[in-house]
Amino acid sequence: MRIVAEHLSYTYNADTLFATAALKDVSLTVEEGEFFGIIGHTGSGKSTFVQHLNGLIRVPSSMKRYKKKKPKKGQALPPQTVLTVGEYDLTDKKTNFRELRKHVGMVFQYPEYQLFAETVKEDVAFGLKNFSEKKPTNEEITEAVRAALEVVGLNYNEIAKKSPFELSGGQKRRVAIAGVIVTRPEILVLDEPAAGLDPVGKREIMELLHKLHKEWCKTVIIVSHDMDEISENCTRAAVFSEGSVRYVLPPHELFQKREELRALGLDIPLTARLCEKLEQAGVKLDCDFTIDDFVAKLSALKEGKA
């Protein structure tokens, strides 16, 4: 499923004293199969954008009105808002949003705080039961939950019957992710998936996401503050600032825009910083800003010189 957004705008608390524009004319396409990154400060509009993708925030119907309006003489029509996910037209009120949500899984920040059921199995099965047309049998549920738990690296026999609240922090987060992917969504969106984890926990979660990307969900989208995380993991990344998209580029091109990113108050990855300083010291290094490539290129440089 391909995601296409064109001229998407959104305002919170429209028509009040507190009206704040969260999205301003956002156009962005995410291809099927990408590991896509979304970067931006709190309040940059990235969360608002992401919540559009499964219809948690709807495109205001006023955006559709333009279709019917005839342009006045000499006046250009405002651009038409487009938002599609695969076949689904999200600007259309009649779209079956629940069906859409089955295909677009969404893991919110600190997802472990949304666990509620008495057992891990029940919690993971929640989405499964909600999305099924007819009631799934107990075997079907067990199978699906087992598969979901196993792919996130948990042992079904050990924890399915346990209360989610007696697990460790890292386990809880995995259970929460299992509860989203259990319906095998084609697109998986995660908001700060590694927030609050220790270094090894962070690495394990990123490894898990790559595994899911390979075996389970075609497209993975992560929202992250951590530029190193973006440069190490993503195929492309979009930079949000003050409600608009500034750049959509692969990390190795994006992080060459050091000054532009800094002007937006954003960081650049450590490898990009080192490359910058090396360049100033007369060593030009053409790397894609992953640690692997960085050390490999340096080693090659040394071999070449030797």
């Binding site: 919540q51 499964n54 948690l56 629940r98 949500r101 089955k102 677009v104 899984g105 969404m106 919110f108 997802p111 705080y113 949304q114 509620f116 059921a117 929640f126 989405g127 039961k129 909600n130 999305f131 509860g179 989203v180 319906t183």
Partner: peptide
């Protein structure tokens, strides 16, 4: 939280009183 559960297919808008009350639990 409501959004997170909606993303997992929870339905808060339809059904009778009992169904709606049960939908609030998550």
């Amino acid at each position: 939280i409501k959004n997170a559960q909606k993303a997992r297919g929870a339905d808060f808008e339809s059904g009778g009183l009992i169904k709606r009350i049960r939908a609030i639990v998550p």
